[in-house]
Amino acid sequence: MEDILFYIFAAGTLLSAFLMVASRNPVNSAMFLIVSFVGIAALFVMLESYFLAVIQVLVYAGAVVVLFLFIIMLLDVEDSDKIRPKIFTIVAGGLAFALLAIGVLGLFASGAGGPEPELPMRTAASLSRNFGYQLFTKYMLPFQMIGFLLLAAMVGVIYISKKGPTASSDEPEKE
């Protein structure tokens, strides 16, 4: 039963991820991204990591994709249908995919990626308390640094997007 569910969710995640890249309409892409994220959340549930699953849905499928949709609507992209990938891009992408596939198959053929026996759980990842303890003791320093990272990002967004007298008057035409 669990195996079947795993295959269903994994296939759904992969398929929607592929459709997200291949889809011509950006709004459709964002929708497929949500499906993909929900599939990953389902995989987390099967690993008994309920907290991660909830975060995955709340933050990624909820907040992040909604933000994407806002921006797509604001930009009002119309010409995206006309942009076709070049032959060179398709060939290069196909080649990269083939190389990766050979690598992964080689991994399985060598037995290194083979089925591993089930392992006992170290700490219950379902409890948000465990994350909290780690975050505020051992990983306090990276936690504080992320605060500065977000501040820098915020200052940057405000700086780059704010309206005002642009500095350089002799703006060149980009060839």
């Binding site: 820098a152 700086y159 780059i160």
Partner: peptide, 19 residues
């Protein structure tokens, strides 16, 4: 990431310039 995010902004700091 802190370094890289800072650099993203610094690189486009001269925001009147297309380059």
């Amino acid at each position: 990431e802190t370094v890289t995010v800072g650099f993203y902004i610094l690189v486009s700091y001269s925001r009147g310039s297309l380059y």
